[in-house]
């Protein structure tokens, strides 16, 4: 299905197909991603939502035999980020991913956040200090860690570690943030902090989130895409999807009757 929305777009997938070797995992996915909005991808396990998310930062390039067809266009440059001529490393700087389980580097809190900048070749301590503070404030972690920036990241609680990973993702000033089930390993308090953060972050950055928790999709996202067997079955404003979806399959999935 092809969908249009009446907002500025940050990205758009056009006839996107993806293959894990012979396995055709994404089928003609057309999806607009609104700028500075949260787009949630929902659907049963194996529906292709994580596969789709990973296309955005070219994670699939890490494995042989994976193949893309179609386009993922980033605006305003109109750059097709899955084109072989585009450097995946550069894309990952601009489109960062936060994973299911917090995965801080075995380094200090400070160095975790500074890492992306150092990889980028930023050397000035003043600039890095500034970016570390800004990112940690951005991920609502600053007040909790400002006095122990040189402690190991592993000293932090799970929820704090996840916010550290968000700060690390923010440090390179990304254009899109990708969240792959970012709270499935967290307790309800840490979860609600991350959700609040996502809603705040969309003032600055475009967000795509994969979640198994439908109430989470309902709480944090502006748009929701329901995927099934590698296809987008329905895409609409989140309030529409959760009150009156158009497609019977969507209805059955979100009311818990299948999936």
């Amino acid at each position: 299905m092809t969908v249009t929305i009446s907002e500025d777009l940050k990205a758009e997938s056009k006839n996107l197909n993806f293959y894990y070797g012979a396995l055709h995992s994404l089928k003609n996915v057309n999806l607009p991603i609104a700028r500075r909005r949260v787009t949630a991808l929902i659907g049963p396990s194996g529906c292709g939502k994580t596969t789709f998310l990973r296309c955005f930062n070219r994670m699939h390039d890490l494995y042989p035999h994976n193949r893309y067809e179609g386009e993922i266009i980033i605006y305003p440059e109109k750059l097709n980020i899955i084109s072989p001529s585009v450097d995946p490393i550069e894309i990952r700087m601009q489109i960062s991913m936060v994973f299911q389980k917090p995965n801080p580097f075995p380094k200090s809190i400070y160095e975790n956040v500074a890492y992306g900048l150092r990889v980028r070749g930023v050397k000035k301590k003043g600039l890095i200090d500034e970016a570390v503070e800004k990112s940690l404030r951005g991920s609502a972690l600053w007040d909790e860690v400002k006095d122990r920036l040189n402690n190991s990241a592993f000293d932090l609680s799970g929820g704090q570690q996840q916010r550290l990973c968000i700060a690390r993702a923010l440090a390179t000033d990304p254009r899109i943030l990708l969240f792959d089930e970012p709270t499935s390993a967290l307790d309800p308090t840490a979860t609600s902090k991350i959700e609040e953060l996502i809603i705040e972050l969309k003032n600055e950055v475009t967000i795509i989130i994969v979640t198994h928790n439908m109430q989470q999709a309902a709480r944090v996202s502006d748009y929701t895409a329901f995927m099934y067997l590698g296809e987008i079955i329905e895409f609409d404003k989140t309030d529409k999807i959760f009150t009156a979806p158009s497609n019977k399959l969507t209805e059955e999935y979100i009311t818990g009757r299948f999936g």
Binding site: I241, F242, T243, A244, P245, T250, E251, I254, T255
Partner: peptide, 9 residues
């Protein structure tokens, strides 16, 4: 139950 869609309606 946090009903959704048709159930909520």
């Amino acid at each position: 139950r946090q009903p959704r869609a048709g159930d909520l309606r």
